[in-house]
Every structure is written in structure tokens, then in C-alpha cells.
Amino acid sequence: MHLEYFQMIDRIEALDLEAGTLTASSTVPMESPVFEGHFPDMPLVPGVLLIETMAQASGFLVLAKTGFAAMPFLMSVDSAKMRDFVEPGAELTVSAALEHEGSGYAVAKGRIQIDGKRVADCQIKLKTLPFDQVPLARIVRARSEEVGLVAAMDTANGGRQ
């Protein structure tokens, strides 16, 4: 996790395209300028960054499901719940489950767990635009390769991509 650059997902751990699910891992850094103000002497990951983490997992799932045909953009967050504090050094398991994809939108449920204990969850709504309408394809594909999404897609597709 690189908070200052909003790179919240470290690695894609599992991808099931048929079920429409993705699991990722992320380690909260021990130090970050974010913690200087949130909160001095009691550093906690801001809830909005936990939501961003679930949104990114959901976005990677949409990228995989569409085969990089559409870029997902966060549009709304519903029923967000922060159930516990997340501190520096925490090992997060982030999951996304696709509920709808099509008609220019996607809806997913996001969840974050630490050692099997749920610490945050929400519903994420994403607008999807064809990559030819946004100048991000190269950057998004490179980041997807860094976190292992492309390899997970290859595995999920039985070696065919």
C-alpha cells in the first residue's frame, strides 16, 4: 500500500471470473504522512482510504471481467461501515464481489478483513467508459500487471487471455 499515491492494493490473490469475485492483499505501511494528522500519537488509516481500497479492488475486478475493455470510475458508495480501527502494519484481505456489470455501470460489494475479522464493508457503484474514451489504458494495464491482475486473469481463463 502506498497511501500518498492512492495505490491501495499490493497483490491480487484470487480471481474467479465466473463467480465475479476477487481477493487482494494489502499491507498498511508503518509510516506515512497521512498518519501525522490522522491522528498524532494514535495513527489510524482514514475510513475514506479504506473505502478507496475496496473501490480499487472492485475496479480491478471490473477490469478483469471486461478484459480491459472498460475503465471503472468510482461514482458512489452506499452502506459504508467502518467496524474497527486499522493501524499501521495491518495485513488487509480485501474482497470484491460483482453484483452487476453492464449498461455503462458496475456494482460491487467490497469488504476488508484483518485476520478473518471484518473491519469495513460497503457497496461500490462504478461508471465504466470504453478505454478508447480515456487516456489511461497504458497506465492502468501497467498497474494491473504490478499487482498480478493480468497473471490472475490468465490463470482464471485457463491460460487463455
Rank of each mutant, 00 (worst) to 15 (best):
A106H: 04
K127S: 07
D115C: 13
L74M: 11
D115P: 04
A69F: 01
Q123G: 14
V107R: 13
H100V: 01
A70R: 06
V86W: 04
E87K: 15
D121L: 09
A97E: 11
Y105G: 01
E101A: 11
A70S: 13
T128H: 00
I112C: 05
A106T: 04
R111A: 13
T93I: 04
F131M: 11
D121I: 12
T128F: 09
F73G: 00
A106R: 02
M75L: 11
S76V: 06
F85T: 05
P72L: 08
K65A: 14
G104T: 02
P72N: 07
R111E: 09
R83P: 09
G116T: 07
L74G: 12
D121A: 14
R83E: 05
G67L: 13
E99F: 06
E101F: 13
A80L: 05
T66C: 14
F131D: 03
K81C: 13
F131Q: 07
I114Q: 09
P72K: 11
S76M: 08
I114F: 08
D115V: 07
E91W: 00
I139F: 04
E99T: 12
I114E: 01
D115E: 15
D121K: 10
K117L: 12
L74W: 03
I139E: 09
I139S: 04
A137I: 05
A137R: 11
K117R: 15
C122F: 01
P130Y: 07
V134G: 12
D84V: 12
F131Y: 08
M82L: 14
P135S: 14
L136M: 09
V86R: 11
T93W: 02
V119D: 03
Q113W: 00
M82P: 03
M71R: 14
V134L: 07
G89E: 14
T93V: 05
G89V: 11
L74F: 03
G110E: 05
A97F: 00
K125F: 08
M82W: 06
L129Y: 02
S103N: 09
E87C: 12
I124P: 01
A80Y: 03
M71T: 05
